[in-house]
Amino acid sequence: MARVWRFGEDVNTDQIVPGRFAPYVTSEAELRKYPFIEARPEFASSVVPGDIIVAGRNFGCGSSREYAPQALKLVGIGAIIAPSFARIFFRNGLNLGIPLFEADLQWLPDGAEVELNPEQAVLRFEDRSVQLPHPPAWMQAVWSAGGIVPYFREHGRFPGEAAQ
């Protein structure tokens, strides 16, 4: 079972990791302590690997800082589910191999215990089973490779071209 962490709309990357806590001014080793350090100070110490973020639309807007999704990956976030994502965050998350699903699950309460099967894009909550939209095959290929770097090293090219 995974715990749901609920967030609202327009969560920006300054909320995920403020610029003052960037590895450039702190350190790579400390990054796992900083996700939502000011927006939700209990998050980093309570989150466990596999937990899921469920948010409102436009998750990850603002800066291009990859250390925002990187910090969420370091604490083991299993997936992020929101009706929409800001473009750079979505791309960074995909590049890092974090499963991202575009769906509105804001009816889930904070702290809900759920089960997620990312491959089948199915989420179970109590006696409900929710089918999430399946990402395109090339996107799943990037996830299953573990991110864009292993994907690129394996295929020698970028996704998309062969998928058309």
Binding site: S64, R65, E66, Y67, P69, I88, R91, N92, N95, L96, G147, I148, V149, F152, F158
Partner: peptide, 10 residues
């Protein structure tokens, strides 16, 4: 267009 560190490295 803006991109993250991995895309820029690529």
């Amino acid at each position: 267009t803006g991109m993250g560190a991995t895309d820029i490295a690529l």
